[in-house]
Nucleic acid binder design. Structure first.
Lengths: 344, 344
DNA sequence: GTGAAAGCGCTAACAC
DNA sequence: GTGTTAGCGCTTTCAC
């Protein structure tokens, strides 16, 4: 038995196909009783609109594309970050009868931009969500926008009234974490910076500096070591920091992977956490709760951010110029076991 | 400027649209010179076929659906498992001009089956890949197959000639891991079983028993404790095991999450790994290399398995009855730092 | 080997 | 409020 089409429903309900279409798309201008009749017919026939037909006729699909940096390009990539993004976007899609297309891509390759535009032109998604660090690369964003597809950037690093974006308060929350560390009596609080390609992460050092200032501590560039967001780089940075005669009593890393790297370095050096060293991270990916001691970190609301981004796309906010700009979803501190009072 | 359509290409190349279609779909019966002319026109116009139109006309999309257990339903879900699956499937999609639709779903909910069928009927995917434990639930598999959509099961637990599936040699490789542990001098090797919903994981205990036998060790059900695949359950199981007067010197957990739980329990009890206790896991998700000491485990080739599954779907193997059955992608041991010689 | 014509199942524009 | 009529850009069928 072939599937019911919009014609079958129309015939059964005794209306035209246009009316069925209106009911299916929740459009106004349908009398309540008519709507009910149609809904009854839909239920009876088990009618499900064919997305391909919808897409072709409306010249846009009900797909949302999620574009992010391909984890396969890295050594020990934490997948929690991506999963959180996916979950948020999926949540929004579920309530809006859409589907999510995932598209990891390696920005180091020449062909990224071309691949992105083909993907978009072929599937005609209703919109694209770009995750950092891709979201702060003009080349990428331009490629997407050149297709005319609405695009929301996640944490593009700096605000920009011309684009839609969703971010968190990286700087403020990092100041807060730093003040928290200081409040535990730490005087030498080190910071490990992240991937320079990832702009939003750059705002985190700034927050660290703010926090030091707020706490009456002096900033010293000796206490800032650079990493690249990878666990290994955190470990290397921590080795440097902990190898000194006067070593820091707390290390704040710009992301969780690097913070776990710090924990590993401490473990190798026989330094106890949190008794001899406090460690804090940023993101609150699952890994933060899988390691022991559990990592104190900043919960970046990636799922909420992605959900918001998807909702904006699905509700067509991009057409409305007044809404352009950055929406901020605030982060929060998650104090767990890896931080404690400063040693004497 | 509106996008080029198949008509534009046909006109420029001086052929009919059918010929363009043949070229685009790599169909036979096109003269080489004609093909070249068409390809030149395609390049010149930057023509990209509209997927929606293709899908509508051919009554099937070029989408592959990946269905897996929703991690959001769990406490500390390791996302590495899912990411590996996604990566493999994406790899196959990339080379076949298809896209991947991800669909986490919670099998504990009544509506799963209905949601799955709507997803499928609406998007008409070329095929569905079901991951465990969903892949061993008749209710789920039946729902998918009732739509007539080809389906490949990943690790369905037991073979079945009527379905397409991809699995790994769980049992054999677990025997190997057990023999390896025994070869290090361990006499009391414990095993933590996994989620009973997840059938393939059940084969792992069997392998453990085989391995004991091969090594001349006696099986004792005292040394087998049950878990549910979660980190917390591994920790709880380890606490039981390690609280005994005569405790095991090695613990083999049916997945990495539980193995990390064991490591955490040992950490809390002040038991050194691998000096006092060897720990082994299964899966080789990133977490295995993020913890310290790095976890000895079985590398389950999930990415290759998913890639194979997607390829089977994309190449239409499902139509060919002779290929039905289970394809096996072998796993391999990854010896790292968490296992060592048995203590005296 | 190639082409003409007839849909695929919807939405859009406009008439009523 | 509701219906009519054209397409959307392809694949399919079948003729040549």
């Amino acid at each position: 038995m072939p599937r019911a089409t919009i014609f079958d429903v129309a015939k059964l309900a005794g209306v035209s196909i246009k009316t069925v279409s209106r009911v299916m798309n929740r459009e106004p201008n349908v009398r309540a009783t008519t709507r009910e009749r149609v809904e009854k017919a839909v239920a009876e026939l088990g009618y499900l609109p064919d997305q391909s037909a919808r897409n072709l006729a409306s010249r846009r699909s009900h797909l949302i594309g999620l574009v992010y940096d391909d984890p396969a390009a890295y050594e020990l990539p934490s997948s929690g970050y991506i999963i959180n993004l996916q979950q948020g976007a999926l949540e929004a899609c579920r309530s809006k009868r859409s589907e999510l297309l995932i598209h990891p891509c390696n920005f180091r390759k020449k062909e990224v931009a071309a691949q992105l535009t083909s993907l978009i032109e072929e599937t005609r998604p209703a919109g694209i969500i770009v995750a950092p660090p891709l979201s702060n690369m003009p080349k990428i964003v331009r490629a997407i926008e050149s297709t005319g597809t609405p695009c929301v950037q996640i944490s593009p690093g700096k605000q920009n009234g011309k684009h839609l974006s969703v971010a968190t308060n990286d700087r403020e929350i990092c100041a807060e974490m730093t003040r928290y560390l200081a409040s535990l009596g730490h005087k030498r609080i080190a910071f490990i910076t992240g991937d320079p390609d990832h702009k939003a992460v750059g705002n985190r050092v700034l927050g660290y500096q703010d926090g030091l200032k707020d706490s009456g501590l002096k900033f010293s560039d000796k206490l800032v070591v650079s990493g690249d967001n990878s666990l290994g780089s955190g470990e290397a940075a921590a080795k440097k920091l902990l190898g000194r005669k006067l070593r820091p009593t707390a290390i704040f890393a710009a992301n969780d992977d690097m913070a776990v790297g710090v924990m590993r370095a401490a473990d190798r050096l026989g330094i106890k956490i949190p008794e001899q060293l406090s460690v804090a991270g940023f993101d609150d990916i699952v890994l933060a709760r899988q390691v022991f001691p559990a990592l104190t970190t900043v919960k970046q609301p990636l799922d909420d951010m992605a959900e918001l981004a998807a909702t904006m796309l699905l509700e067509g906010e991009s057409e409305d110029d007044s809404t352009k700009g950055t929406k901020v979803v605030p982060a929060e501190l998650k104090v767990r076991e890896s931080t404690g009072p400063a040693p004497d």
